[in-house]
Write a protein that binds this DNA or RNA. Structure first.
Lengths: 147, 147
DNA sequence: CTGTGTGCAAACTCTTTGCATAAGT
DNA sequence: ACTTATGCAAAGAGTTTGCACACAG
């Protein structure tokens, strides 16, 4: 992996300008906190975070941000389509930085969430939705247990 | 629908004895509260309940039971395989009395959950699970929005 | 400057827990 | 009798809110 290759990877670390532009495009003012959080979220490939884990990470990274702002930001990002909220039972909300169609393993005894690699999962045989509604998204969660 | 037919429907209202037996088979002592809740849950076909809705229903039905007991009972029933907990994002837990393989519509703007009729949904192309784990169950949630 | 965003702490919701009482076997 | 279940109220987690201050445009 030469320097040249590195610089050409499409999802290389976004620059502060990239992040500002992305927030602005989503209709959000690029404040210090939002930029820092966006850098954490979108600078390292696909991620699953809860408010708690993102807050810890921000604090560890030296970003001064309150938990309330983490919650606000996660919901704003979700409503702007930058994040997707995941359907996992339990007390805590998870958000996924990968907003394309993909699915998850949920490792029950660890409470851990893992992307299903590849794009091979297909769902067939769905009935037509009830009158006046359309499918916005299909969540497939494959629950795993220890053998 | 003659009386004879009625009495022959396999999933007709379970008798108190049926319910006791079912609880006993699940390793649970058939107490008054558990029997009442089981009657509500399993006496009316497939249902989706939260602790709150089941509690309201019990109170309306004249069953004296505390919310703490509702929670205990729902979890005991789930661990005994009488109920399945549903994977819906959000603050509140839902339980399903239909423990066979089936899937759900989730009507986002109403927060409402509906069984997908029939047994036609198929999920293909799943990768093999990671080492040391097996698939316990696959949840498919089809999210619907108003057109 | 003006309006939006942020931090803090308090409020709120859903859920769990501890312990005395009640009920099942 | 002995054991397990229940009710109550209080505690606990996660999340949201209200308002004064700070920051971006």
């Amino acid at each position: 992996m030469s320097k040249i290759e590195q610089s050409k990877i499409p999802s290389a670390l976004p620059t502060p300008a990239d992040i500002s532009a992305r927030l602005r495009a989503a209709g959000l003012r690029p404040t210090r906190q939002r930029c820092s959080l966006a850098a954490l979220l979108f600078g390292q490939g696909d991620r699953h975070v809860s408010a708690e884990t993102l807050h810890e990470e921000a604090v560890r990274a030296g970003v001064r941000v309150s938990l309330a702002t983490i919650y606000n930001t996660l919901h704003q990002f979700q409503q702007s389509g930058l994040l997707r909220e995941l359907a996992i039972e339990g007390h805590r909300s998870y958000f996924d930085t990968n907003i394309s169609n993909h699915n998850h393993f949920y490792i029950e005894h660890r409470g851990e969430l893992v992307d299903i690699p590849g794009d091979h999962v297909r769902v067939d045989g769905l009935p037509t939705p009830p009158e006046g509604m359309r499918i916005s998204h299909i969540d497939v969660v494959v629950r795993l247990v220890k053998i």
